[in-house]
């Protein structure tokens, strides 16, 4: 098996051998369940039913959850000295970075699997508009990929998990806020440029079910950029 998969598998087992996986899954199910129930309540009042607001809410959950998932990935290795094990083994920085990223991303995929019963219920007891469900699922995976890449990068910078977590959270929050000026000042060019860099603007477009290559490339390049930056940080360790 490909080395990054082994590293990713070790990370996933790590999540599930501590409380973090169970707490995150429980929180995730509770929040998504509450949102779903309130959507059903709104539909009972006569509003048109759509699952899109559910996925819109999940992005906020991701904002809080990603730092918790990624903060320990490399910072802990640095703090406990196991980074020495990784880099005295015949591994390249890419293998290590990819392994860590895939581990966090796979956990996000598990969380997404846990929300599959919502569209299933809708399909069973009503009419399901499949487009937005597919669009939102792909959008959430893209979003998780970019968030995790940023989280891995922040985790590679320091040996304190708390600092790595805050860095990740701050960065993601900032990326959300980049879309705000464009909403209040639609004519401002700078605001429009800033909005292009906001993960959430791209995410919102995909939610509706319209998958544009522009958005896919945005998420892919964002993920690649931070993974590449992580490998550079890891390599620079050698020269310090």
């Amino acid at each position: 098996m490909f080395i990054p998969f082994h590293i990713a598998w070790k990370e996933i087992r790590g999540y599930f051998s501590s409380w973090i996986a169970y707490v995150l899954c429980a929180g995730w199910l509770l929040l998504s369940g509450l949102t779903f129930v309130s959507l059903l309540g709104a539909a009972a009042q006569g509003a048109p039913f759509s699952l899109v607001p559910l996925y819109q809410n999940l992005i906020i959950v991701f904002l809080f959850l990603t730092p918790l998932l990624t903060m320990r990935l490399l910072a802990e290795e640095r703090a406990t000295g196991t980074l020495e094990l990784l880099f005295t083994s015949p591994l390249t920085p890419w293998q290590v970075t990819m392994g860590k990223w895939l581990g966090a991303l796979a956990f996000c995929a598990v969380l997404l699997l846990l929300t599959l019963h919502f569209p299933f219920f809708v399909f069973q007891y009503g009419t399901l508009d499949a487009g937005p469900v597919w669009g939102s699922t792909i959008a959430l995976i893209c979003l998780a990929a970019a968030f995790c890449a940023f989280g891995v990068f922040c985790s590679s910078l320091c040996d304190s998990q708390i600092v790595a977590g805050f860095l990740t959270f701050g960065g993601l929050l900032l990326s959300w806020m980049l879309a705000w000026p464009a909403a209040t000042a639609p004519d401002n060019r700078l605001a429009a440029v800033a909005a292009q860099f906001s993960v959430f603007a791209h995410f919102a477009r995909m939610l509706g079910g319209a998958i544009d290559t522009q958005d896919l490339i945005f998420f892919a390049s964002l993920s690649f950029f931070f993974l590449f930056a992580t490998t550079r940080v890891l390599e620079s360790r050698q020269w310090k």
Partner: peptide, 17 residues
């Protein structure tokens, strides 16, 4: 790195394994 076995000053262990 394939040819050496290295034990650092603090054994590099993963406590949860």
């Amino acid at each position: 790195r394939r040819s050496i076995g290295y034990l650092p000053e603090n054994a590099p262990l993963y406590d949860e394994m």
